[in-house]
Amino acid sequence: MAIDKATVAKVAALARMRVPEAELDALTGELGQIISWVEQLAEVDTTGVEPMTSVVAVDLPRRPDAVTDGGYCEKVLANAPQGMAGFFAVPKVIE
């Protein structure tokens, strides 16, 4: 799959990451190179092979559905660039 500038711009938008127009060409080249390199996996026969979902054989643990943590709003907000009245504050989203 060839990667063009428009694809890189679209993927950057999906990733919510501004990429300066001046860097798009170089990035398109690099990503294209990496993607065509990983495409060699197509030559591996994986018929009937399940994708790995668990690295070590272990059952996912369960626990009672109970509150075990929380109740420290100030700690949670301590690192926020902007907090207000016990909430994270963000730029206005509704005009």
Binding site: L41, T46, E50, P51, M52, T53
Partner: peptide
């Protein structure tokens, strides 16, 4: 992604 997961199993 799924292809890579399968090769990872191999």
């Amino acid at each position: 992604y799924l292809k890579a997961g399968r090769v990872r199993s191999l």
